[in-house]
Amino acid sequence: MVTAGLALAGAAILVAGTVTIMVAIQRRPYQAEIAPTKGSPGQGVLYAFTLGMAPWAKESARRHWVAYLRGIVFHIIIFVGGLFLIASPWLTEFPSLLRVSLAALFALGAALTFAGFGMRLSDPALRRLSTPDDYFALALVTLFLASGAASAAQIEFLPAFWAISGITMAYVPFGKLRHFLYFFYERAFLGLVFGSRGVLKWKHE
């Protein structure tokens, strides 16, 4: 019961923090392109959120394909983890095959996020630039997925999952995890600016 309250409190902080950040973003000035367009801003945004994200569209993703793929996969797993958290009060009603599958998926996610420590520490440049915020966020997300895997497999771990979820959600607005929100803004800006200028489009001649 206490841990469920912790999860709910964390969720409330996450929602309140997200709204606060969105208000803060909106309060900042924004200058849209005013000049007559050379391309299409709408097409630019669509491209930015779809093909523009495809690994083959980026030389950097081809070069760092392990890191890029790792990033895509664990973010998808975190999203599934969020859905699992919402549905977790009804965990007993989950079919056992689903529970085993989710446990495996979250275990993979936890392994991938944990690998982030290795990637940060093994690369001299990343090690030098990584901050306590980076490691703390990585630890929280790893624990979130690990406890998710444990609770999907064994219902006794559910309170631990809720507690960790609560702490993780509460931290989101205060550290790097808030990038989840800025991601949507950044892709949209990229699409709007480069789309207007005819730079991002489905196909170049």
Binding site: R28, H64, A67, A125, S130, Y185, E186
Partner: peptide, 12 residues
């Protein structure tokens, strides 16, 4: 602001 906040220092 978005450019400042969104980077996760992944090195890609």
């Amino acid at each position: 602001l978005t450019a400042l906040e969104v980077c996760v220092r992944c090195g890609i």
